[in-house]
């Protein structure tokens, strides 16, 4: 009874060897990317700084995260849907109790979670918002032209992670070990492609925002 074809064997494979492989590829890839970015740094600026770097940098991290009125007026759909599903994804990822247990098991840190039905609702909204982004991308002539295979790959894997999680929690796939195994498998795919696709923005977006603000601040420009 060690066959991969049976649901429990599949679950134990995704929870065991495959998880270790995925997390190793993720750690290796992400650290390689971050080390490269941070070590390369920027060309040294010999001009005398007009103001500090840290405060403007941190301010930009906040201001560029919040939607500004101009962008909202130009592309309200992007701002609203984007915010909804990003927040939903983070809530499901970080505040669902089984996920908190996983993080606690991995890193030993934990925090309080949210009641499951609330996370379930948030997940459903996230799924709808994600589906809407795809429809929008396919119907918008400019975005359709700009989209690459990577964009669709990233969307598919992200959607699969949320979808399988929703199906597993609501026990819509039977038996449950199969449902949970599929969810873990798609999360592992997400981890594996993360460092090598634009999913890396999860880690680099805030670095980039800080960089921008710091650079503006140094030159005394409002960021």
């Amino acid at each position: 009874m060690t066959a991969l074809t049976d649901p429990m064997g599949f679950l134990l494979f995704t929870k065991g060897p495959l998880f270790n492989i995925a997390i190793a590829i993720f750690a290796l890839g992400l650290l390689a990317r971050l080390a490269e970015i941070l070590l390369l740094g920027r060309r040294p600026n010999f001009a005398e700084p007009r103001a500090g770097e840290w405060l403007p940098g941190l301010r930009t991290v906040v201001t560029r995260t919040l939607p500004d009125p101009g962008t909202f007026k130009r592309a309200p759909f992007n701002v609203v849907t984007g915010l909804i599903w990003h927040i939903g994804f983070l809530v499901a990822l970080l505040l669902f109790i089984p996920h908190i247990e996983l993080i606690k098991g991995l890193f030993g840190v934990s925090w309080p979670g949210l009641p499951n039905p609330f996370v379930d609702l948030v997940t459903a909204v996230t799924l709808v918002a994600l589906a809407a982004t795809l429809v929008h991308r396919l119907n918008h002539p400019v975005k359709k032209r700009l989209s690459t295979v990577e964009d669709y790959l990233v969307w598919t894997v992200t959607f699969l992670v949320v979808l399988t999680g929703y199906l597993a929690y609501n026990r819509l796939i039977n038996p449950y070990p199969l449902a949970l195994g599929l969810h873990i498998l798609s999360a592992e795919l997400f981890l594996i492609i993360l460092p090598f696709t634009k999913l890396t923005h999860i880690f680099t977006a805030f670095i980039a925002r800080w960089y921008n603000g710091a650079s503006f601040g140094r030159r005394g420009v409002q960021s």
Partner: peptide, 28 residues
Amino acid sequence: PLSVPTDLSSTQVLTAGAAGALVGGTVA
């Protein structure tokens, strides 16, 4: 808990991370 992987090895993750940092550093 059911969501926790079965044979977690933090040294493996740290080793992979260290190797990644080394690769990134070399590339840079």
